[in-house]
Simulated scan of single mutants.
Amino acid sequence: MALSRLENLYRHVILDHSSHPRNFGELEQATGMIELNNPTCGDVIQLHLQLKDDRIEDVKFSGHGCSISTASGSMMTEQIKGKTIEEAKQMIEEFLLLVQGKLETDESHLGDAEVLGGVSKFPARIKCATLSWKALEQLLLNNE
């Protein structure tokens, strides 16, 4: 029964981020922007980043997608704001391992995004969960 309560909590966190996404919108002063889509399901994300002195000063995302995609974008933006580029890259790597089932959540530093580790059981949903993180990865590579 405890596992059922934990699963319900995870669902609640995902639904909260999906229904009330944090950092949703566009940045007027963005130093970088990228748009990615998931052609399998039609999810689209635009990620806007403001970098200053090797640190993510601000971040927002916009677009449309399923609840997993939207929740993941919301969770990601909350976690990376204020982080250095190197810290953000480590978080991307950690998240990608997590959703592939290759990292235990007790080893993670991803905050609410840890609940998305459950998508590893649903391979078709992995692309939904990773879309915003892949956008961040590409955007940071473009700014090197």
Rank of each mutant, 00 (worst) to 15 (best):
T130K: 13
I68Y: 07
Q79D: 07
R125T: 06
D112K: 12
Q90N: 09
A71M: 00
A88F: 05
E94Y: 02
I85Y: 11
L136K: 06
A71V: 10
M75D: 10
I126E: 01
Q90L: 15
K121A: 14
P123E: 07
S120Q: 00
D106F: 03
I68G: 07
K127S: 12
V99E: 05
A124V: 15
K89H: 07
L116T: 06
I92Y: 11
K81R: 15
L131I: 09
Q79V: 15
Q100W: 03
D106V: 04
I80E: 09
K81V: 04
E87F: 03
S120W: 03
E104P: 03
T105L: 12
S69F: 09
K83W: 00
G111D: 01
F95S: 00
V115K: 05
I126D: 04
R125M: 08
S72Y: 00
S72K: 08
L131H: 00
M91W: 01
E93Q: 12
T77K: 08
E93L: 08
M75N: 06
L97F: 02
E94M: 11
S132A: 15
E94Q: 13
E93S: 12
V119W: 01
Q90H: 10
D112E: 15
M76L: 15
M76Q: 08
A113S: 13
V119K: 08
V115M: 10
I126S: 00
E93T: 01
S67A: 15
S69K: 12
V119P: 11
G118V: 09
P123V: 01
T70M: 13
M76N: 03
V99W: 04
I92N: 09
E114T: 04
E137V: 13
P123R: 14
K121I: 00
K134M: 14
S108N: 07
D112H: 13
S69R: 12
C128M: 13
A113G: 03
L136I: 11
E86I: 15
L103H: 01
G73R: 03
A88D: 05
S120T: 11
E87P: 00
A124C: 07
L98M: 04
I126F: 03
A135G: 14
K102Q: 09
A71L: 06
A135F: 00
E87D: 12
K81I: 11
F122G: 10
I68Q: 08
Q79K: 14
M91T: 02
G82P: 11
I126C: 02
G111Q: 03
A135D: 14
E137L: 10
T77G: 10
T70C: 05
T105D: 12
I126K: 06
E104A: 10
S132D: 01
A88N: 06
K81D: 00
E94V: 12
W133M: 02
D112I: 05
I85S: 01
E93F: 10
K83G: 08
L96V: 04
T130D: 07
S72G: 03
H109M: 14
L139G: 11
A135P: 15
S108H: 08
F122L: 14
E93Y: 06
E78L: 13
C128K: 12
E114M: 14
K102P: 02
K127H: 10
T105P: 15
G111A: 10
K89Y: 01
Q90R: 09
T70G: 01
H109T: 13
E94P: 06
G111S: 09
